[in-house]
Design a protein around this nucleic acid. Structure first.
Length: 568
RNA sequence: CGGGGUAUAGCGCAGCCUGGUAGCGCAACUGCUUUGGGAGCAGUGGGUCGGGAGUUCGAAUCUCUCUACCCCGACCA
């Protein structure tokens, strides 16, 4: 490709509304342009990268035995009524209708469509297992789209769905997908971790996420410093920090805390450490309100809370009036003694003694409170966020934290959708049974942004070799005027082209500094600078984008030099 | 959804308070010079001032309204 025949529009200035580096560099390099909130056009430059990522995904999915297909982006509402997921997805669903006022959603995911396809196509266990996938545009009306294509509303996703006779077969494919994902991200060239995850609105039993490690990641990844345990903070098990409950040593005592409502304020006022206190959170339940209790210095884990049977989904804290009705006080003075609702305590809280909590009376807290003697709970659950320094749940090592960008998520769905939609087959015994399902998502557009987050410097993008829009850039100095520079550049260009190497020749009439800065921004891995100065000595200059190291190479051997580099 | 903010040329912004010929930088285009690190000089093109309504002799500027976009928040107990 010659730059004069390409669409190359770079910007020197950082766009005002781009916060993270990948977004800034994608705009500056001209890969993407914004159309509206969470909507982006992929310019030819960006599309080249996107298609490389797609191709790697395609090859590895095919190699793992999955079959590519393409489903409609627009889905009839009736399908979603069959599985009852409209409420689960809520406002994220983009509802549309046609001229006859029929209702549709622009698909945020395709479990319903594939299950409908399969229930009509597959009738026998002999056709199983089977794994279908597509690479397709989805739309999720995110509460707050941000960070460019990292969290956009319209995005491209590879989604695969597998169907099985039994759980054992599902596990085989799940493991194969896990291996395929590992190969894909390795080929793209990114550092990542596979972690335990919550399955959220998709549902099912087991699931794992693939996270590209980057400081700008929106998820917190907890991992053992010496073991193999790794989990999303949402999912990471939090162990009890107290092995057993100490004997009560204090008498219960009502203390005045006239204006102190927060844990912070009460601890300061009563000269207590926050870990000697508990906080009682009142949330809406599936039937009655529920009290969730965590230690004063801990945070409630909303995902864990919402996964409790008695807690309503989505999680909703009671409002002031409901709190008054239930506890008889304002938020800030709620405690566990004589609280008339179901009380679920965190594992650590269950082993606390001589603690302080609200008195269920405005202006007062209770100190020296002890379980059994003064108050009781109905259940012990894991309710809190795990924290750095906690013992790892698998018993090996201590938890550490890293930020991650979720680029893949694999699920063992079981029969949630097949049962809801009556996707059944006849088994070997001739009996009808619901199929077991797995589903495997990968964010294609997000992967591109994640690659930049992990591969850039102050000059611009540094593409990993396998997804670079071009492998080699030829940068001629004074191409317009110097006949021999032009000839050397054109010759090299033609030769590389004929060898099937993706090469871009900058034949624009621009100054050298401008040209070099542009290609540093674009991040083309291998750059050949051709100028009269080096040609005088029969040489050209090679520059590696990653380390910016320059090498003078004999003009006659540059092809060999480049092919060696490209294979390295 | 709650709160805050912004909207003027492709991009970044000034002008608005105090109404009176729409500006600056970058980018683009032309010419000359320059040619190994985002050049210089001269010139050129480009704006229904987000939309609508109102006040006024006159509105980018004042009033009302709508829309779009951005940021923060959605675990006080």
């Amino acid at each position: 490709m010659r730059t004069t025949a390409f669409h190359l529009v770079t910007r020197k200035e950082t766009p005002q509304d781009a916060e993270i580096i990948s977004h800034q560099l994608m705009i500056r390099s001209g890969m993407i342009r914004k159309l509206g909130a969470g909507l982006y056009t992929w310019a030819p430059l960006g599309l080249r990268v996107l298609q490389k990522v797609e191709q790697i995904i395609r090859e590895e999915m095919n190699a793992a035995g999955a079959l590519e297909m393409l489903m409609p982006a627009v889905q009839p509402k009736e399908l979603w009524e069959e599985t009852g997921r409209i409420d689960d997805f809520g406002g994220q669903l983009l509802a549309i209708h046609d001229r006859a006022e029929r209702d549709y959603f622009f698909g945020p995911t395709h479990e319903e469509v594939i299950t409908d396809f399969v229930r009509n196509e597959i009738n026998s266990y002999k056709q199983l297992p089977i794994n279908f996938y597509q690479i397709q545009t989805k739309f999720r009306d995110e509460i707050r789209p941000r960070f460019g294509v990292m969290r956009s509303r319209e995005f491209i996703m590879k989604d695969a769905y597998s169907f099985h006779l039994d759980q054992q077969s599902l596990e085989v494919t799940y493991e194969a997908m896990k291996q395929a994902y590992t190969k894909i991200i390795n080929r793209i060239g990114l550092e990542f971790r596979c972690v335990l995850a919550d399955s959220g609105a998709i549902g099912g039993s087991g699931s794992q996420e693939f996270h590209v490690i980057a400081d700008s990641g929106e998820d917190a990844i907890m991992y053992s410093d010496t073991g193999t345990y790794a989990a999303n903070l949402e999912k990471c098990a939090a162990v009890s920090l107290l092995d057993n409950r100490a004997e009560a040593t204090e008498a219960i005592n009502k203390v005045a805390t006239p204006t102190q409502k927060t844990i912070e304020e009460v601890a300061e006022f009563l000269k207590l450490r926050k870990n000697q206190m508990i906080k009682t959170l009142l949330v809406a339940g599936t039937e009655q309100p529920v009290a969730l209790v965590v230690r004063g210095d801990h945070s409630l884990n909303e995902v864990k809370a919402v996964n409790l049977e008695s807690v309503a989904s989505p999680l909703r804290m009671l409002n002031d009036e409901e709190i008054k009705d239930l506890a008889g006080c304002e938020a800030g003075f709620i405690g566990v003694k004589d609280l008339a609702c179901q009380i679920i305590v965190d594992r650590t809280v269950a082993n606390m003694s001589d603690f302080t909590c609200g008195a269920n009376e405005n202006g007062y807290h209770l100190s020296g409170v002890n379980w059994d003697r003064d108050a009781s709970y109905h259940a012990v659950e894991d309710l809190r966020d795990a924290e750095v320094g906690d013992p790892s749940p698998d018993g090996t090592g201590t938890l550490q934290v890293a930020r991650g960008i979720e680029v893949g998520h694999i699920f063992q769905l079981g029969s949630k959708y097949s049962k809801a939609m009556n996707a059944v087959i006849l088994n070997e015994q001739g009996k009808s049974q619901a199929m077991e399902m797995g589903c495997y998502g990968m964010g294609v557009t997000r992967m591109v942004a994640a690659a930049i987050e992990q591969n850039h410097d102050d000059k611009g993008i540094i593409w990993p070799a396998n997804i670079a829009p071009f492998a080699v850039a030829i940068l001629p100095m004074n191409y317009q005027k110097s006949e021999r520079v032009r000839r050397a550049a054109d010759d090299l260009y033609e030769q590389l082209l004929s060898m099937g190497i993706e090469v871009i020749l900058d034949d624009r009439k621009v100054r050298p500094g401008f040209m070099m800065s542009d290609f540093e921004l674009l991040g083309i891995p291998h750059q050949v600078i051709i100028g009269d100065r080096a040609l005088d000595e029969g040489e050209v200059e090679y520059r590696d984008r990653r380390d910016m190291a320059s090498t003078r190479v004999n003009h006659d051997t540059i092809i060999q030099f480049l092919t060696d580099r490209l294979q390295a």
